[in-house]
């Protein structure tokens, strides 16, 4: 390998991306790379929201401190973020890069887009986490098995280096489980070949403008003020892994779900039934737990 190898992780808050990026840096260092860097992305989003993390790996000390724009590898920890965001995931990914994806028991391969010349690898990291009970506060730590998938795909770090890194990063009790997840994922990772139309020209590295209505400093007022709107952070329905579904047969219209919803994402329709606003429902499951008639069920999101 020549120069600096750059990695971008995609996932959601709470899935262990930051930890995985740290462990990858330690593992690469164990492997003999003197230049390693782990970069968490610090944003406003909370558990469940899309986040990114980065790594740089090099045989020489890493002097770059800016963000990663043109990664050599992209690791997608949570496949649910792919939907509608295919270009966001592969933005800047190099032509001869690696795309490593958690397929989570779902057939998402048709959704994938990859730059021409890119190698695509998949593994079902979600099942591995569920099988090994690798969870923190109710969320699967999907990024851990993805370390194994990354190692398999790129050959940049060995399992031995990863094991050593994990052993030095966790309490004794958690080491075994995490190592098991990494090994298992390493073994189950497969290279896939996409259909020719799924290979696209490289996508420019820049993110789309977050505030398209402001283009230049002359558009700004003297003081930044914000105006009320639903979705002040976007469509938070995307954070959901499970969706609450109301059974109107069982519903007594008691409106406990409406009362207890932390998101104000439950409305009441004209006939008095609660109605979930799936654009914004984050899928916290409070309504599911509070419904006295058990009229709400949680259904896995098929994205």
């Amino acid at each position: 390998m020549r120069g600096v190898f750059e990695v971008r992780w995609h996932g959601r808050g709470g899935q262990g991306l930051v930890t995985a990026s740290r462990i990858l840096a330690v593992a690469a260092f164990n492997e003999g790379f003197v230049g390693v860097q782990s970069i968490p992305w610090i944003g406003a989003e909370r558990r469940g929201a899309q986040i990114e993390a980065y790594n740089r790996i090099s045989h020489a000390p890493v002097l770059l401190h800016s963000q990663v724009y043109e990664p050599d590898a992209v690791v997608v920890v949570d496949p649910s973020i792919l939907s509608g965001n295919e270009n966001g995931v592969i933005r800047g990914l190099k032509r001869d890069g690696f795309l490593v994806i958690n397929t989570a028991r779902l057939n998402i391969t048709p959704l994938l887009r990859a730059p021409e010349g890119c190698s695509v690898y998949v593994v079902d990291a979600t099942s591995i986490c569920l099988e090994l009970d690798l969870q923190v506060a109710g969320l699967e730590v999907l990024a851990m098995p993805m370390l194994g998938a990354f190692a398999n795909a790129t050959g940049l770090v060995s399992l031995k280096s990863l094991e050593k890194a994990i052993a030095s990063s966790f309490e004794a009790g958690a080491v075994k489980k995490n190592i098991a997840a990494v090994i298992k994922a390493y073994e189950l990772t497969r290279k896939v070949h996409l259909k020719p139309e799924q290979y696209v020209p490289p996508v420019p590295p820049s993110r789309p403008a977050r505030i398209p209505e402001i283009r230049h400093w002359t558009d700004l007022p003297p003081v930044p003020v914000s105006t009320p709107s639903k979705g002040s952070i976007g469509k938070t329905g995307e954070w959901r892994t499970h969706r609450p579904v109301i059974d109107k047969e069982k519903c007594s219209k008691c409106l406990f779900c409406w009362m207890y919803c932390p998101e104000a994402a439950i409305n009441v329709d004209d006939s008095g039934f609660p109605e979930i606003d799936y654009d914004y429902c984050k899928g916290c499951e409070v309504c599911f737990n509070e419904c006295p008639r058990k009229a709400i069920s949680m259904v896995i999101e098929e994205k």
Partner: peptide, 14 residues
Amino acid sequence: LPGNSACQGCGSTL
């Protein structure tokens, strides 16, 4: 309003 950046199940926004 919904669609804010509170964590899932936030007691404070409730």
